[in-house]
Amino acid sequence: MNGAELPVWVAVVVAGLAIAGAGLSLLGAFGLVRLSSFYDRVHAPTLGATLGMTMILLASWIYFAASGERLLPRELLVGLFLTVTTPVTLILLARAALFRDRTESGAAGKTEVPPAPLVE
């Protein structure tokens, strides 16, 4: 097993950040199951995609920097990529759902959705 040469407090910080991040992500997934309407559910995964992701990336970077394997914060790449793409996917998905609810109104959609803006 590796990591034996790390100071104890670094190990505690890394483990704590990883658990907290994973817990937040789990909470987001739990919200995905628990919330009752689609538009509510879209909010849930953002927990894991923002703070949960940051915490796990931070844990990874602290571990590799403290063990002297690598100092460059390469996790930044993953973080930046997720920060830019998550809103794009969620917005697209919400708009797709809105489009479907508007076109097949009264079918299965229980939540009422606002009408489309007028196009002149």
Partner: peptide, 13 residues
């Protein structure tokens, strides 16, 4: 990006 990244608000249209 700001509004969607903040949990609890979602930019729709």
């Amino acid at each position: 990006i700001i509004l969607t990244s903040t949990p609890g608000t979602l930019w729709v249209e």
